[in-house]
Design a protein around this nucleic acid. Structure first.
Lengths: 159, 159
DNA sequence: CCGGTGAGTAGGAAATCCGAACTCACCATA
DNA sequence: TATGGTGAGTTCGGATTTCCTACTCACCGG
């Protein structure tokens, strides 16, 4: 009872914190649409297929979190458009990675519903690399170093 | 009325499909633990803080999807351990990206709870690059090319 | 004035989630 | 051989969220 980590607190983690913001149902799909430029409420409803009230809740949360902004594109009648902030755009790579993964593993046969082209002229196949050395990141190349209490790492990634 | 996309069907999308598998609450945290080598049921319960039944459901789904495998590490008493498959490991970059993002945007002050070191000797800061040219991916460098019906792209990313 | 559009709210039914307790098989030890 | 402990779940009712449909409210165009 004295210790801080009794039982039911999950461990501190930036992944969990990030997911608390963008891990709810539809949140990343909102970001997808907004990054594509489809930032109006009814577009979002149609394209995502989310209930309007859930969408309204998500949008509020994402704006509060600084991931989206709500900008008026017309006064009288007031009409709004959601756009990604810089922080929101920094989440776009997650979408690209999910798409690359989904294309590879869930669409062996059916064609891709969407292709993203990179400025270099080729279809974008996203990979994650290390900023320091530029190398592609593989699981075996990683070592975990817990900084906060509550962490244990038992596997091959252990420090 | 003739068209296929009446109203309430969301559009076909690999991002949505991928999220249908790993976008549920706790799923990516399960992957985090499993990638760290903490693949036993009670470890997962403790480290993630999820209810046991929800966790059991998630694990079944992830195994069915081919993202995890359930391996016995001891017969008599039967004891199991979940491990990432190759497809599961290919999702790890998403975790790294989320962590990098979370560290940057949600922990301006509080220190990182965990540092991942790359084999190159530096802390891993994940970025997404294009397989074709190796360049870091920025929003402005992308162009969307819808392949399936139901897609509209109005913004700066439009083809 | 009348219908249509954009951006939501309201309200009850349906699905999920939660926490704690329970099971079941096995081992350890006394 | 009883006693307790661990791992891996399952079961249970109740609390929360989601879902869906319908409604509002402001405005515009004809």
């Amino acid at each position: 009872m004295a210790a801080s980590r009794s039982s039911r607190e999950p461990r501190p983690c930036s992944i969990a914190d990030a997911l608390a913001l963008v891990g709810e149902k539809y949140s990343l799909l909102v970001l997808r649409e907004v990054c594509l430029g489809n930032g109006r409420f009814d577009q979002l409803v149609r394209n995502i297929g989310a209930p309007r009230d859930v969408l309204a809740t998500r949008l509020r949360r994402l704006v509060d979190a600084g991931i989206l902004t709500k900008q008026a594109y017309s006064e009288r009648p007031q009409r709004f458009e959601y756009r990604p902030t810089r922080a929101g755009l920094e989440l776009e790579p997650i979408l690209m990675t999910l798409m690359t993964w989904g294309d590879r593993h869930l669409r062996k046969d059916t064609g891709r519903p969407m292709v993203i082209e990179h400025v270099c002229g080729h279809e974008l196949l996203a990979v994650v690399t290390c900023t320091a050395c530029g190398g592609v990141v593989h699981h075996e190349d990683l070592t975990a170093h817990p900084q906060a209490p509550g962490w244990t790492v038992t596997g091959p990634t252990a420090a």
